[in-house]
Structures are given as C-alpha cells and as structure tokens.
Design a protein around this nucleic acid. Structure first.
Lengths: 210, 210
DNA sequence: CAATTTTTTGACCGATTGGACAAACGTTAG
DNA sequence: CTAACGTTTGTCCAATCGGTCAAAAAATTG
C-alpha cells in the first residue's frame, strides 16, 4: 500500500511475481495479448485468478512489465557492437548473438514480434527513443567502417534490419521453418545451418571490394 | 441453400462477400484472429453483424477463406523462379518481387505472420505439404546452380528463409522500421533503400568465388 | 399488381472475459 | 492465547463475445 511510490516487496511477493511473469511470457508469446486470458496465465502459474490479481493490478500491467523488461534484453546484443573492433568480426559476433537469442529465448522474440506486428501500440515511445538512438549510434559506427573502406558500402540501417529479420525469423516463424525443413532437417541442427549460411552471406556481401 | 455443394451465388452475395473479406483483412491483420471481433469486421464492412453472418457461417470461415486465398498469392513469387534463367538474375528478381509484395500488400503479410507466429494452428497442413513441396523443388534448382559453380555454395533452404525474412520484415515490422528510421528517412523511399541494400548483400554474398 | 425469394435488422442468448470483494486462511509478533 | 498482517479463495458482476432467430424490408419474379 503506502504511497505506491515506495517499492516495499516481501520475499513472497517477489517470487510470485516472477512465477507469474514466467507463466505470462509463455501464454502471451503463443496467443498474443488479446488471445490470452488471465485464467490461462493463472493456471500456468499454478494459482487462482484472484490470487494472481493480488500481485498485479491487471492483465495490462503484467504485459507492460514483461515488455519493459524484455526490451533491455533485446537491445543488449547490439549494445556490444564496438567501434574499435574488427568490423567483420564485430558484425559476425552480433549475428551469432542474435541467433543464439532466437534459439534460447524464442518466447521473448515472439512476444516482441506480436507487439510490433500490431503496430507496437504499447511500446512505440520506447522504440522511437531508446531503440532509435541505439540504432543511430551503431549505424554511425558501421558507416565509419564503410567510409574507411574496411567493409563494403551499404545502408547501415538496412543492414541492421536485415540482421534482425534473418535471425529472429528462426524464433518468430519457427512453425513455418519446421514445416518446410521437415522432421529430419528441422531438428536442433537448423540453428547451426542457419548460422553458417548467414555468416557466409554477410561476410561475402560486406567484404570490401578489390 | 441447395445441397451446399453447388456454388450458386447471386451478384449481391459475391459483392458482399468481397466487401466483408476486404474489411476482415484490415481487421485481422492488425489485431490477429482472437483480437478481432465480428462487430469490428461488420462495422468496417459497413453492415450489421447479423447481416455479415448471413454471408459467412462465422468468424472462422471468414478467416479460413482469407488465408486460403492468401496462400496462393504468397507462393506465386517463388513459383516464378525458373531453372533455365541466369541464377543471380533469378534470385534478384525474386527478392524484388517479394519486396514489392511487402510494400503493396502489407496487410496480407501481417495476416500470414500473425498466423505463423501463433504456431500456424489453422494452416500447418498446408505448410507441410504445399509450401514444403514448392520450397523443396526450388531449393533443388538453386542447389543445381551451386553444383554447377554458377553461384556460391550455401544452404538453399536457409537462403530462401533469409529472403522471406528480410523482405517481409518491411511489412510485418513496419512500425519498428518507421520508428527507427524516423520521419525523414522512414518515408516511401525506404523500400528503394531496402531494395538496393538487399541486392548488394545477396549479389555479393552469392557471387561465385574466384 | 401480388407472390415469392433474398436481404437486412433488432432483440435476444449462453458463454467467456477482466476484474472486484469480502471472507477465510496462514503466519508471526507480542 | 490474541491481534495484526500478508496471502488465498469462492463468489459474484458488468461487459463483451460469437452466434441465433423471427420478423421486417427490399428485391425479384410471375
């Protein structure tokens, strides 16, 4: 209670909130926001609906908490791109990190994709500020490499978009990827195959001419 | 009525069904299946809910009709990939066609993305048969080009995935692309920029070594 | 014109939804 | 023990959902 400003949470509150968020991630990522019900989340979290609503004010607050926390995780790989590294190595590492995230955190990727797909109504401000600033900053770095002739010239923003697209594809469109590859080729090896392909594509496509 | 097998539709029925499908595409693509209501679709189509339900048996049937029709449109660009053409030209044309579809039919792309994101519950059989067969066939062609040394060797399935991902990204994640590019760079020119970038990436990445 | 068929609508229904609430339960400090 | 606190639950509610239905209104046909 208090003035709602003070964050005084008991141990149980912290634990239960985590349990709920974990369950909500599972449910939201597979059914979308409107497709998910509080009952579903409550059941997945192993508690009753009123009990869940004791820890979160409502469905919206759960979703907001999840998205806000997710954005940090999502920006992290790009933040690691360093201007003082070897360009091709830096880009290759970034692709690898993003692909690992698609493999290890597909639910987070799908939650994010769901939100963007529907116009990002709940996070547009964050995208326009935090994400845009980060991308602008890193695009600047990449552009510097290009001007120095260390990699081929290309639009750095669209380069970043293409890396997002190709890597997250394996999380967001997993159902389609599996369907097309079939049971044999669609196993766990698909991420290694994808990694090899993407590395070759980007190394070849970005190697400076000459 | 009749035996339901015979398709005897009056002029009004055909027109109204088209109006409904157009409205449903708009609504479904921005809110997903569960996020959309019949009332929303009816209002977007300019008619009452019972009137809409006079032309379609239910929400599910509208969605199914939409998806079935969409799949044809969606497979078409890949079908045009011809084994007897110049490899790099064929691939470049395919990328261009897909990018044009993302630009001109973003709602269709998002409808499809929504469905796949949630595990493709309604079209998995179609993916496993129609889509898989088509991709396998075209992957075979691409593999032939690679064996002949006409383009660099790479996994043809993942090559196709990457083309899907990078082109559809501009429709599915349009909100994010616009947010990052900002008002100036995010205008209509973004598709031309994307086209130039992707062409360079794939031409460079697939040019045979030597 | 009247008869018939197609189209449209207002009223309604059962099910599900997000959420409220008081009562009950459990735990711990005195 | 009791009082105070945090936690949990059963019950209930208003709103919304997909869908039905009978009857009105148009349109078509004779």
């Amino acid at each position: 209670m208090e003035a709602a400003v003070k964050r005084k949470r008991t141990r149980i509150q912290k634990e239960k909130r985590e349990t709920i968020l974990e369950a909500a991630l599972e449910v939201f990522s597979t059914h979308g926001f409107r497709g998910s019900t509080i009952d579903q989340i409550a059941e997945a979290a192993g508690m009753s609906k009123p009990n869940l609503l004791y820890y979160f004010r409502g469905k919206e607050e759960i979703h907001e908490t999840l998205i806000a926390r997710l954005l940090e995780t999502w920006l992290a790989p790009l933040k690691e791109l360093r201007a003082d590294g070897d360009p091709l190595t830096e880009i290759r590492s970034y692709i690898r990190r993003k692909l690992e995230m698609a493999r290890d955190y597909p639910r987070e990727s799908r939650l994010f994709a769901n939100e963007i797909l529907q116009g990002a109504p709940r996070i547009m401000p964050l995208l326009e500020v935090d994400l845009k600033n980060l991308v602008d900053e890193k695009a600047e770095i990449i552009e510097g490499w290009m001007r120095a002739g260390r990699i081929a010239c290309a639009d750095p923003w669209h380069l970043i978009f293409s890396i997002w697209a190709t890597t997250q594809h394996y999380a967001d469109f997993d159902a389609q990827v599996r369907a097309v590859l079939g049971p044999e080729r669609g196993g766990e090896g698909r991420f290694e195959d994808a990694g090899r392909f993407l590395e070759q594509l980007y190394i070849g496509g970005l190697r400076p001419k000459g």
